[in-house]
Structure formats: structure tokens, C-alpha cells
């Protein structure tokens, strides 16, 4: 894993509203544990007000990057800054404005959820002593734990634990919120709630950094994406740009899907069946040609539209290319 700068040159890398300074940025970030390189050459920019999804398979260095960004871990090389303050030196300046849920929720099992939050609240510089109980109750309410506030954390379900971790991150009005795998252990309803919380934060102008290995989640909530693979950033940019950078395609809605695929194959146009319809690759052809080929074959076309390159495709493609590139290098 040598100095592999962003493996794929994706348009839009770092191209984000240059006017406002980024809420967080890293340059040449590297972390090694003994001889193992956890993170290498990570140049990350999180624009103010963005919701950045950090995507990557397990072990790709997402959490290590987040921990360095938050000043929990000292980088072996490179630098990180948060809200304009170098980390970890500027932690006292930056962290009061940052809420974080890192590496799963960590709470004391013998204390109730409320007591756990009160203990965390005591350490929050931005809360006065009197405000703490109110802030705690509001945070519990917000994540839907008000009913279980006085129960011991020991008895919480996985989802409740996750929500409590979320509540801790939201204890104080933040300028930035960092959520590491926030939907872990949540049921679909919980996942939706997390999404809505992220949306609320985004609407309020809070910068959000979400890491996930669940692509749908990132696609649903993020404005920006960074894809990590094997400790390096292989792609990053605005979600929309990254989506367009994929191979062009056409989705055809038709009642005779099988027939359509067969007809296209006869015309040497690659296509496949997807739940949305027939997905046609436009790398070697154009949309009118596809439509005319189908019409000639007598297939009725209800609708033909440009296909969104699913983030899943992108993700798989980028990581795939990265590993291929390494092999060939």
C-alpha cells in the first residue's frame, strides 16, 4: 500500500464551494500502528454545511480518519484541522462545537441513560450547570428515549444504545456532528429517524460527517461523498457529480423486458434487467439508437430516461479499480 494518491481521478475531487473555508480538512494524513498502515495520504475536505458520507468497507480506515480528525488519535504524519483549528492541538477550540458518536456508543452500564448523559453534560464546556438537565432531557426526547431515560443502560437494546450515543452527540447545539456508523443496530424505523435527524441538522446549517458501509444510507442523506479503500481516499466530491461520473446508461420501462434485452443483444448493445426496468449501457451507443432498435424489434417502450449511476455501482467500481490498479502496479 504505497503512496497511492486518489486512485481514480474523479471529476469533482475537492471541487466544493471554495468561498467558505472547509469545516474540516486533512492533508497527507497517515497513521501507522507498528508496521500496519491504517490510513495513508488522506486529503479530505468537508465543506461548511455539507453532509459528507464517508463510505468504505470495514477496515478501510474510516474510523481511524475520524478519530484523527477529532484529535483522539495523533497522526503519524500529515495534518488535520477541524472548524479551522489544527487537531489535536486545537481540540479545546474546536471540540465544544462538535458532537460525535465514534466507534459505537460508550456508556456506563450501571447508570441510567439520563445519568450517563448528565455525566457527559458535566464535561460540556458550552453548557452551564443549570442548563445541563434541560439539555439532557431535550436530547433524550429528540432521539426518542424519553421513556427509557431512567432505565439502566445495561438493559438497553442495541438500538436504544445507539440512540443514546446519538443523543450524546446532540447534547449541545453543534456546528458539526460526526456520526460513525450511526444506524448500526437500528431497525428500519430507527434508520429513518436517524436520516431525518441528519436532514434536520443539514437544514439548520450543521456540517455532518457520516461514515457508513451501507451505501443506501449515504445516498439518501448526503450532499458529499468520500470513498475510502484500504486506508486511502479513492474518490470524493459532491454526491451529484460523483453520480454523473459513472458510465452513462439508459433505463427503459417496458412490459416486455425479456424481449427487450434479447432485441438489444441482437443489436450488440449491452443491457440487463433491473427492478426499475431494462438498464442499457450507453458507452458504445446513443439513446436514440437504443430506442429505435427496440421499436424495430416491436418492443413497446413506455419510458426511456437517463439512468442514475447508483452509488453502489460507483462504490463497487472505485474500490474494484483501486485493487486492480494495485495489482497491475
Amino acid at each position: 500500500m504505497s503512496t497511492a494518491v486518489t486512485g481514480v481521478d474523479v471529476p469533482g475531487t475537492g471541487a466544493s464551494t471554495p468561498a467558505s473555508p472547509p469545516a474540516a480538512r486533512t492533508r497527507g494524513l497517515r497513521k501507522t500502528y507498528g508496521s500496519t498502515v491504517a490510513v495513508d495520504h488522506v486529503d479530505l475536505d468537508i465543506p461548511e454545511g455539507a453532509v459528507l458520507g464517508m463510505l468504505g468497507p470495514n477496515g478501510s480506515g474510516k474510523t481511524t480518519t475520524i478519530r484523527m480528525l477529532l484529535g483522539l488519535v495523533r497522526p503519524t504524519a500529515g495534518e488535520a484541522s477541524l472548524l479551522g483549528h489544527p487537531m489535536p492541538a486545537g481540540a479545546a477550540h474546536a471540540l465544544p462545537h462538535v458532537g460525535a458518536l465514534v466507534e459505537g456508543p460508550g456508556f456506563h452500564p450501571f447508570l441510567s441513560g439520563r445519568e450517563n448523559l448528565l455525566r457527559l453534560g458535566a464535561a460540556e464546556p458550552k453548557l452551564s450547570g443549570r442548563e445541563i438537565p434541560r439539555a439532557v432531557d431535550a436530547a433524550l426526547e429528540r432521539v426518542g428515549l424519553a421513556g427509557a431515560a431512567t432505565r439502566r443502560y445495561r438493559g438497553y437494546s442495541l438500538g436504544m444504545k445507539q440512540r443514546l450515543g446519538l443523543a450524546a452527540a446532540l447534547l449541545v447545539p453543534r456546528r458539526m456532528v460526526v456520526l460513525d456508523e450511526p444506524t448500526n443496530g437500528l431497525d428500519p424505523a430507527g434508520t429513518r429517524e436517524v436520516r431525518s435527524i441528519i436532514a434536520e441538522l443539514h437544514a439548520a446549517g450543521v456540517t455532518v460527517l457520516v461514515s457508513s458501509h451501507l451505501l443506501a444510507e449515504v445516498e439518501a442523506t448526503c450532499t458529499h461523498v468520500a470513498v475510502l479503500h484500504a486506508g486511502t481516499v479513492v474518490a470524493q466530491g459532491e454526491l451529484a457529480e460523483l453520480l454523473e461520473s459513472g458510465s452513462p446508461g439508459l433505463v427503459v420501462s417496458t412490459p416486455d423486458a425479456a424481449e427487450a434485452v434479447e432485441a438489444l443483444r441482437r443489436n450488440r448493445i449491452p443491457s440487463r434487467l433491473t427492478p426499475e426496468g431494462v438498464r442499457v449501457d450507453l458507452t458504445a451507443t446513443t439513446a436514440p439508437e437504443v430506442v429505435s432498435a427496440l421499436v424495430h424489434a416491436g418492443v413497446s417502450v413506455h419510458e426511456a430516461r437517463r439512468a442514475r449511476t447508483g452509488l453502489e455501482d460507483l462504490f463497487a467500481r472505485l474500490t474494484q479499480q483501486e485493487s486492480n490498479g494495485e495489482v497491475s502496479r
Binding site: 472548524l83 479545546a92 477550540h93 465544544p96 462545537h97 458535566a122 464535561a123 460540556e124 464546556p125 458550552k126 453548557l127 450547570g129 439539555a135 431535550a138 436530547a139 426526547e141 429528540r142 432521539v143 426518542g144 446532540l170 447545539p173 453543534r174 456546528r175 429517524e193 431525518s196 435527524i197 434536520e200 441538522l201 437544514a203 439548520a204 446549517g205 450543521v206
Partner: peptide, 25 residues
């Protein structure tokens, strides 16, 4: 997870100095 947006952040770049919770607390 009701809408309690009033606890959302007021942009307060002024309060950017180093701050820490009081030790007795």
C-alpha cells in the same frame, strides 16, 4: 424523534475561543 429543532445550532463564530467545563463540575 420529534422535531425539536430549536436545539439546533445558532451560528456563533464568536464563541470560538478555548473553553472548558468548570473543574468543580
Amino acid at each position: 424523534m420529534t422535531e425539536t429543532l430549536e436545539s439546533a445550532p445558532p451560528p456563533s463564530p464568536a464563541a470560538d475561543g478555548p473553553s472548558r467545563a468548570p473543574l468543580p463540575r
